[in-house]
Nucleic acid binder design. Structure first.
Lengths: 137, 137
DNA sequence: TTTTTATTTTATAACGATTCTAAAAAAGAT
DNA sequence: ATCTTTTTTAGAATCGTTATAAAATAAAAA
């Protein structure tokens, strides 16, 4: 999964039904050629610009959402007012450092969740998110 | 807990170290004289104004945060871009209806969470939030 | 190729939620 | 009552995000 080649990214996009534009390749490489990443759109944009790669903030936003719809990314809600994305789409959970805003993965089998009650009438469970909030000791 | 008298609200505020101003009493009554409530600041403000009670939106924001610091309220993060508060401060979890934005309580003993791993070095767990996302069946 | 059509990117404006500001009002203390 | 501190308020400012509509690019057709 991690450390895909450039062509790998191109294929990834194409098979997700996304045209492999220059900007999408740039974003895709930043996300999938490294390890699992947690980031905000602004973080990512700043990083790309910093590396001299030209992409607008709008394009970053647009494509993070497209990547998400395509199942290549996942959104993580830990703080209101800021959107985090996670390049690990496998089911798993998170530690969230309230002081720094950092996220750390907790693999799904590390934590045990049982007896999730049946949802209210007419509703269906679409996901279970666990956020373990942590602060400086 | 629920259905406190007006004097009860006054005491609640006073013992939390908050001056029982007219606005705080109005907010306090709205939150603690009814059952457990999930709401956004804008929701609450609209409701109060609708009942003919005069409070500014700023004051609602200010006081929801003061109530939260004082331990009378709890913030629930389920969606980025909107803050939800919960008048139930006992540890418990939530169903979140992604279509309507409604929250439903899941009592702490209904759901079972085990094997929460130790947090990263130097950090301390401050809370564990479980959000069960639901959609129309 | 060149042309045509559809999609994407971009700068910029607009937006909604929230926080800030600083002046007026209210609360509590003297 | 008077003074001091806290609170409220309207309005401006800010932040993250989304919308707009024109220019650029990509893919398809000729």
């Amino acid at each position: 999964m991690t450390h895909r080649s450039f062509d790998g990214i191109k294929n990834l996009l194409t098979s997700a039904g996304l045209r492999p534009t220059r900007q999408r390749l740039v974003i895709g490489r930043a996300l999938f050629e490294r390890g699992n990443l947690h980031f905000t759109p602004e973080d990512l944009h700043a990083e790309l610009v910093n590396e001299g790669l030209r992409v607008s903030l709008s394009t970053v936003y647009n494509n993070l959402h497209k990547f998400t719809s395509a199942g290549l990314l996942r959104e993580v809600v830990v703080e209101s007012g800021k959107t985090f994305f996670d390049s690990n789409t496998n089911p798993h959970h998170h530690f969230f450092d309230e002081d720094t805003g950092s996220l750390y993965d907790i693999s799904e089998d590390e934590i045990l969740i049982q007896n999730v009650p049946a949802p209210p009438e007419g509703l269906l469970i679409s996901g279970v998110d666990v956020v373990v909030r942590v602060v400086k000791a």
